[in-house]
């Protein structure tokens, strides 16, 4: 469905993307991990044509994206949703209108668009804030509204650019839960740029590690993180151990397992195969609730 071929983008002398190539099938979820400044956001923006790449090509459903102009380009952008690190809600519109903006501007009647928006808000459990203005929302609610805004257009591909990294740790879960739920449906492709390694492990069909504008490793998540000997893989592994191991030791043994057993979707998310391959004591962070 999406082919990225030799994508290169320079900002002056700085090479932000260096011949990046990968494929994405329909319904597939690709997690992209990488240190800050490695070009992850630039890659996503190039894909949605929010910036123009210097060279390389992107095909979406067999169409070269660089050829798109005017209404064709806009239609493409609507088929590829984008969730930013910050929600970027439009402050003078209510949450409902923010969500309806895409459908209205796509040419739907205001009423139909608002109905779609209301449905999208229901999916992110934000119906009660439909008539509120963004300024009165919490960070998690704002990001959920932003997700609803993207969902209202029913995109075939969603690009997630670290949607939780600007959030309070307490609020991260409510956003991750939605993402996990969307990934589990497998009815649309997703590219998820995230620093939440356990989440990435749980939801991604494939994973790519980026460094200095290049994809250094890509493949099955467990291969990339556990099986690869690339320096970046090692770095992530170590990071994972330091940051999460202690926590999972407790949660995984006490509550995590109990909850994982309770929810079928979480069982899938946790992925028995994945858990089996991970070193002992590694557990899926069980606080995600579907």
């Amino acid at each position: 469905m999406l082919q990225v071929h030799q994508l290169t983008k320079r900002f002056g002398d700085h090479v932000a993307l260096d011949a990046v190539s990968f494929d994405l099938k329909a319904g597939e979820t690709l997690a992209i991990l990488g240190p800050s400044g490695s070009g992850k956001s630039t890659l996503l923006r190039c894909i949605q044509r929010l910036i123009a790449p210097d060279s390389g090509e992107i095909w979406f459903c067999g169409q070269p994206v660089s050829q798109l102009r005017g209404e064709e380009l806009r239609a493409y952008r609507r088929r590829v949703g984008f969730v930013f690190q910050h929600p970027h809600l439009i402050e003078h519109m209510t949450v409902l209108e923010n969500v309806a903006l895409g459908p209205v501007m796509a040419g739907l009647s205001t009423n139909v668009a608002l109905r779609l928006a209301a449905a999208a808000l229901e999916r992110v459990q934000l119906s009660d804030k439909a008539r509120a203005y963004p300024a009165s929302l919490s960070g998690g609610e704002r990001q959920r509204a932003a997700i609803a805004r993207t969902l209202a257009l029913e995109p075939q591909l969603i690009l997630w650019d670290e949607p939780t990294s600007a959030l309070d740790p307490i609020l991260v879960d409510e956003v991750l839960a939605i993402m996990a739920e969307l990934a589990s449906r497998r009815d649309r492709a997703m590219i998820v740029v995230t620093h939440e390694i356990p989440f990435a492990l749980a939801v991604a069909d494939r994973m790519a590690l980026m460094e200095r504008g290049k994809i250094v490793v890509q493949g099955e998540p467990e291969e990339v993180l556990v099986g690869s000997d690339a320096p970046l893989s090692r770095k992530f592994r170590r990071l994972y151990e330091v940051r999460y191991a202690g926590l999972y030791h407790h949660i995984g043994t006490r509550r995590g397992r109990k909850e994982a057993a309770r929810s079928r979707s979480q069982q899938r998310l946790a992925g028995a195969a994945l858990l089996r391959r991970l070193p002992a004591g590694w557990r899926w962070k069980g606080t995600i609730s579907g």
């Binding site: 929010l50 952008r77 949703g81 439009i90 402050e91 903006l101 895409g102 805004r149 257009l153």
Partner: peptide
């Protein structure tokens, strides 16, 4: 840039973007 990009990523045409997002803000 932020609201501009957000609206652009929703496939909003430039004139609409000016009218609905930029000017009222």
């Amino acid at each position: 840039r932020a609201p501009f990009l957000a609206a652009l990523s929703l496939g909003v045409a430039e004139p609409d973007l000016v009218r609905e997002v930029i000017i009222p803000a």
